[in-house]
């Protein structure tokens, strides 16, 4: 098994969705990391492809930061194997570091320096010189929409501006793989949209791949090609959003009305393929794998009883529900 994996390199073609063929950018098997007795990452397996945006969706303390720290060379795994761009993370870290960039959760900025000086410092360490360096800095400032503030001290920036600069530093080396660790925390909706646009543009322009760590399921849904449901250091499932919803989600019927009694609830519960029925705050919540068929029956009984429906809704399930189903807990409290 390990021999096979070691042989995999970025030229191995993997067929996804039938006709499109893509190169593998990350491949991990049994990746683990402990801090003392505490296991932060438990034998994680996953693969991702060039040009793909993979969401890593998990609550606080799930081990998201620990996992991407291993991929970026900050932490050495205790067990397992991984390659990035075909290079072994244990042996060829230097090659990996040139093609990967980590945008850390904690702002990696020097507050005493200007935005320009920060960018120039990191550009220097990426070995950029002269005209190319100037171009890249310019591009990063553009992306962060910070041109006007280039010569201002970062310490005087607002939280959102700092976040944007933090992200912009990550594109200086035109990475093949970007590891974004909750890059939108504390960013206003407008800036967040701008960041999303930028990420999408980088993906399409440079065929860049992104691991996007978040505990906002909306972000994972809108931005990511595939999402890994991740908790307690374990990938519970990894797939595109619609497949995840199909596999683990249920639509839910929500009917708002007064005077619902126990007998009605019992009646609905006893219908075929009904998973659960709850009456909370004058609203009846009904889960079923055959929701359309059941809806007709439910509405008929309500009409027979002469009850008045004040609101009616079929709610699509979301990743939050998938997460709840897979882990038994909510993404956020």
């Amino acid at each position: 098994m390990s021999v096979l994996l070691a042989d995999v390199d970025q030229n191995d073609e993997i067929h996804v969705g039938g006709s499109i063929s893509k190169n593998k950018i990350v491949s991990a098997t049994g990746l683990s990391k402990s801090f003392g007795n505490f296991v932060a990452v438990k034998s994680v397996d996953f693969e991702m492809y060039e040009g793909e945006v993979l969401g890593l969706l998990g609550p606080n303390g799930a081990g998201k930061t620990t996992l991407i720290s291993m991929l970026s060379g900050v932490l050495r795994p205790d067990g397992g194997k991984a390659t990035v761009g075909g290079h072994d993370i244990l042996k060829d870290l230097n090659k990996i570091k040139k093609m990967v960039s980590l945008v850390p959760q904690d702002l990696a900025l020097y507050m005493e320096l200007t935005a320009y000086d920060n960018l120039a410092f990191f550009a220097n360490l990426y070995g950029l010189r002269g005209k190319l360096k100037k171009e890249r800095i310019h591009e990063a400032l553009e992306m962060a929409q910070l041109h006007k503030y280039a010569n201002k001290k970062v310490g005087s920036f607002s939280g959102g501006m700092k976040r944007r600069l933090n992200l912009a530093i990550g594109i200086l080396n035109h990475p093949k793989l970007m590891l974004l660790d909750e890059p939108t925390v504390g960013v206003d909706p407008q800036s967040r949209n701008h960041i999303f646009e930028t990420i999408k543009k980088l993906v399409s322009d440079f065929n860049m791949s992104v691991v996007y760590t978040t505990h906002y399921m909306e972000e994972a849904e809108t931005l990511c090609d595939r999402v890994a449901i991740y908790d307690q250091g374990t990938v519970l499932d990894i797939d595109d959003t619609s497949s995840l919803l199909q596999k683990h989600g249920h639509k839910q019927l929500e009917i708002k009305m007064k005077d619902v009694d126990e007998s009605l609830i019992e009646k609905i519960k006893n219908m075929k393929n009904v998973d659960s029925v709850n009456y909370i705050d004058e609203t009846l919540y009904i889960n079923s794998s055959e929701l359309l068929e059941r809806t007709e029956e439910v509405l008929r009984i309500i009409r027979e009883k002469g009850l008045v429906v004040s609101k009616f809704n079929v709610r699509e399930s979301n990743l939050e529900d998938v997460f709840l189903k897979l882990t038994g807990k909510k993404l956020r409290d």
Partner: peptide, 13 residues
Amino acid sequence: ERGTLRKLQTLPI
């Protein structure tokens, strides 16, 4: 403490 050291470790140095 601030986390810049973590970032520095991801650079090719």
